[in-house]
Amino acid sequence: MPLFAIPFPVIDPVLISVGPLAIRWYALAYVAGLVLGWFAMRRLCQADGLWAAGQKRPTVEDLDDLLVYAALGVVLGGRIGHVLFYGWPYYRENPLEILQVWKGGMAFHGGLIGVLVAIAIFAYRRGLSVLTVLDLFAVVAPIGLFFGRLANFINQELWGRPTDVPWAVIFPRADDLPRHPSQIYEALTEGVLLLVVVSLVARAAGFRRPGLLAGVFAIGYALARSFCEFFRQPDASEVINSVLTMGMVLSTPMLLAGLALVANAFRRPALEPARP
């Protein structure tokens, strides 16, 4: 046991409560990720130097609608994914709790599937390339991941394994053992670090190699998530064996898809950049 551990800061999951109406940090994290991502995509679409000559990109009006598509994909996919991947035996016995999203419980891989479906529908209806829209999402998705992991920390969920590191945190909702603040690890790797990597690739290659940015994001997330799984305390339903967890298993197809997207992006020459 460590001689020093950080007690969990007193953070009320509810920011403001007026009668039955409660505004929770968890919900605000998703709102912040979606709104900041939408704003960043607007700036990206207006940066002519990132695009090829004649390459069709979403308009400002398109992005307004895309925000709605993305929100529905993230919330519905994330919740359904959590129920099916991580808690089906429990929710099968307590079906009404499936709708209680304010208590937490959103799966990234489920949200990803929901967003992919939303993007495919949106791109088809607007006559846009699916890969182009995916690349846009790849640049801004780490913003949402960062805020989402901070919300996990405030909600005291997805805590880490017991440890003796000096920055260990005691989560009252878990027990009195010092644990890795794995939510912060994920916020820094899946959020900050991945945002830097994808942004640097976008700065260098722009959107002139369709699928490249989406592939880089998929590879980066799969590696970061798998790394953080060594520090996160998995639920009993998430344990595959002494090493593998459900998070690692679900990240494997994502890693392979990312490698395929990057390879496909480099199979053909980059599109000619647009003139300033």
Rank of each mutant, 00 (worst) to 15 (best):
G81P: 06
V197I: 15
D48T: 15
V130G: 10
A71H: 02
Q233A: 11
A202S: 11
C45I: 05
A40M: 13
V262W: 03
Y30K: 12
R268D: 10
E61F: 10
Y69G: 09
Y90C: 05
I154S: 07
S17R: 14
G105K: 03
N155P: 15
V10A: 14
P2Q: 00
F147I: 13
L188H: 03
T189I: 03
F39K: 12
S251Y: 09
A22I: 14
W25P: 11
L193H: 04
I16S: 04
A257N: 07
E157V: 04
R161M: 10
W25K: 07
S242Q: 14
F108L: 08
R268Q: 14
A174P: 00
L50E: 03
F85M: 08
A107Y: 01
G247Y: 10
M41F: 08
A222Q: 00
K103G: 10
Y124C: 12
S242W: 12
R126N: 07
P20D: 03
L15C: 03
F171I: 01
V14L: 00
I23H: 02
L112R: 00
L256G: 08
E238Y: 00
I98L: 02
R92C: 09
K103H: 11
I121W: 06
S199G: 13
L72Y: 08
A53K: 13
L213G: 08
F227V: 14
W25T: 13
G73D: 01
F122Y: 01
G191P: 06
Y221T: 11
E190S: 09
L177N: 08
E186F: 03
T163Q: 04
P95G: 06
M248S: 07
A47C: 09
L3S: 15
A118W: 06
L131Y: 07
D135M: 05
P9N: 01
P58K: 00
V262Y: 02
V198M: 04
L131K: 13
Y26N: 10
S226P: 09
A107S: 14
L244K: 06
A52T: 01
I80Q: 04
P9H: 05
F122N: 01
A71F: 09
F85E: 08
F231G: 02
R79T: 10
F4M: 11
P89A: 07
Y69A: 10
F231L: 06
R43H: 10
L271S: 10
L193D: 04
L188A: 11
A274M: 08
P89H: 05
A32T: 15
S242E: 13
Q100T: 14
A22Y: 08
V35F: 11
E186C: 01
R42I: 08
N152S: 03
E61N: 13
V31S: 13
P2N: 10
V31Y: 06
W167N: 07
D164T: 15
A53H: 14
A204R: 15
A214K: 09
N155Y: 12
I184T: 01
P210W: 02
E93I: 10
A204M: 10
V165A: 09
Y185K: 08
G37Y: 01
M1N: 14
P172N: 06
A71R: 05
V133Y: 05
Y30V: 15
V68K: 01
L76T: 14
